[in-house]
Design a protein around this nucleic acid. Structure first.
Lengths: 368, 368
DNA sequence: GTGAAAGCGCTAACAT
DNA sequence: ATGTTAGCGCTTTCAC
């Protein structure tokens, strides 16, 4: 395989000149060099270039699970930004394991100029090592507690709150939640956001109604089975990510529980097929490709030598009400008893409306 | 950052000895070296190692679209094989573009020791260049015409044939197909397999009933809209991959066409949510993770220096009949006329059942 | 603008 | 088993 010296000889110049030309500087012998490169099919050896100059013209994207459509979309966004070059984008998978992530980052730090990282958990100094090695890191989806890294998140708490508010407004009082690991940013934020909003609205989380799972389909499946096995089933459930929502749906189908009659379900993350399943799924949607684009821009800034203080970008989410969430059905809630007593004239429509927005601050209004 | 010489000095040996130790050979001063490595936080520089030895301890997986669950699963399989090391796995996305693929492969050839490639199209000598560079290539999902590369495919033709047989057996005579690009292996094989099986069973593909799309959701969507706009709609459609099936489903929903009453649908590729959509989707399922594992094993063989002739592995597929395919409905087929005459007593339940497994060979039973 | 020379960090060949 | 030496292919001074 031809090297730079071969090109130089053929073009009648020195290797240094060829190198300069290849790096975009103006030289007299452009034509000759271009021709020599062409004829020899020359392409620089990445390793030699990296060794000498310290730049790799590559970045790494490290995610817990490529199989998760969310991360896949993220990657697409990132790639679209870097496509024009000169950086190649490499993707690596940690399989939701901190150990694997450690190994990958340690390896990749020697091969790339920057890293976009969606950490498996928050307990790790791996990214700090990367920084020590002089490789900028941008966090996506998950962040390091009080760290000084660029990061792009979505409004996890806000989305979870919207889901809680939605379910309470529909009249649900016995509500379940399937959360991700609490040592991950989205796991903890969504869980807290959901639970706190319930409390704020005077709804207590009953025993066994908070299931901490693992962001995987199997975890969601098992969690939903546990919820269904409860003495008193929740009338509504919030599932904190796409994969667990799928698992939960399968559990419901398997146990013959009908949505939304027997249970309401709201998921975090839109599913590609959310509108096709029956009933169409109510979800909290977040920008995925955009999140990747944002992260890529931040990293590009660092690669260009930006010395700005760490940026913390938070993207908005939005609740999309569809058919899987509805007021609790007659047979399942005590509210129903109240309803039957008090109102019979308005029964036709009111059940479908968020009429139950009860006692925001339980104590403050008690006397009124 | 410490280099190998620093470690050597600290351990009181030469750099060569450290190098040998790191590569697994036995040395006397193991302990001292290990300690020095530890204390200095030393980690070899990949570029230097690659430059000198020519090995990168990395492989690349190049796919058209990470967002496609099929490729995501493939990657998972590959990673599971390489996880134990010593090779890192990098993933790159070609966005279904031969040009991007060319660029990626040209780049990656200088950085890795082997490539697993799912080509965007078949018209390219890129992989040949990789081979010239001494980098082994294993094809997945798609193959190069008459080439001498290892490859792992699934029984595309067989799957498509099974789908055709299934639909014809149900009684469909006016059948549509949404195919992928015919210059890709799975696109062509599935198309041909399907069409030929129809012919073999005496069913002709009507004008406009063969839609060649692009393996993308949007393509499937548009193709289905075109099929629905036909003067005489097909009573059944075969969609040649997961993404197009999703697009087709959305088109059907959008146009208010009910499955399977107004149309039967069979897809190639199982969908994660196939059982959750209404009605559950009939699909041709193929092993995805296994395909990745197989490809990884083949590449491992080459990396280990195997000189065996190119292996061509074909994995079996299987048709999973679910609810989206059923006999053509009353209003849509002339068969119904026959039915109405002959049977009225069994009308209650029979409509939902595949009872009409009528005249496998139209001509053979005509007189009965 | 250009060439000569040095060297990035490592491993392979050759001694011992 | 270990040290010495050379050099992978490139980029970067440093002169000119």
């Amino acid at each position: 395989m031809a090297n730079i010296q071969d090109v130089a000889t053929r073009a009648g110049v020195s290797a240094a000149t060829v190198s300069r030309f290849l790096r975009g500087r103006r030289v007299r012998s452009e034509d000759a060099i271009r021709r020599a490169v062409e004829e020899l099919g020359y392409w620089p050896t990445a390793a030699a270039r990296s060794l000498r100059s310290g730049v790799h013209y590559a970045i790494a994207v490290v995610v817990p699970d490529v199989t998760n459509p969310f991360f896949a979309a993220l990657v697409k966004g990132i790639e679209s930004v870097f496509r024009p070059g000169p950086y190649s984008v490499f993707l690596a998978n940690t399989d939701e394991s901190s150990e694997v992530e450690d190994a990958i980052v340690a390896d990749v730090v020697r091969r790339v100029d920057g890293i976009i990282l969606a950490p498996a958990t928050e307990q790790e100094e791996t990214p700090l090592r990367a920084r020590e090695a002089g490789v900028p890191v941008v966090f996506v989806d998950r962040e390091l507690e009080g760290s000084e890294f660029d990061s792009v998140l979505v409004d996890n708490a806000g989305g979870a709150q919207a889901a809680a508010a939605h379910l309470v407004s529909l009249g649900h009082r016995r509500i379940g939640v399937i959360s991700g690991p609490l040592n991950t940013t989205p796991g903890r934020r969504r869980h807290q956001g959901f639970v706190e909003e319930l409390e704020r609205r005077g709804v207590e989380l009953a025993e066994g109604c908070a299931q901490i799972a693992d962001f995987r389909e199997s975890g969601g499946h098992e969690a939903m089975l546990r919820l269904l096995a409860l003495g008193e089933r929740p009338t509504a459930v919030f599932s904190a990510n796409n994969l667990m929502t799928i698992g939960a749906l399968k559990a419901l189908t398997q146990m013959g529980v009908r949505l939304p009659d027997e249970m309401s379900l709201v998921g975090f993350d839109d599913l590609d097929l959310a509108t096709l399943i029956a009933p169409a799924l109510t979800v909290v949607e977040r920008p995925t490709v955009e999140q990747g684009i944002m992260a890529a821009h931040l990293l590009q800034g660092r690669l260009a030598g930006s010395d700005q203080p760490p940026q913390q970008v938070t993207l908005p989410v939005r609740l999309i009400p569809r058919a899987s969430s509805a007021p609790p059905s007659a047979t399942l809630t005590r509210l129903q008893a109240v309803r039957e007593e008090s109102s019979s004239s308005e029964s036709g429509e009111s059940a479908a409306l968020p009429r139950a927005k009860p006692r925001r601050r339980t104590h403050s209004k008690k006397g009124a």
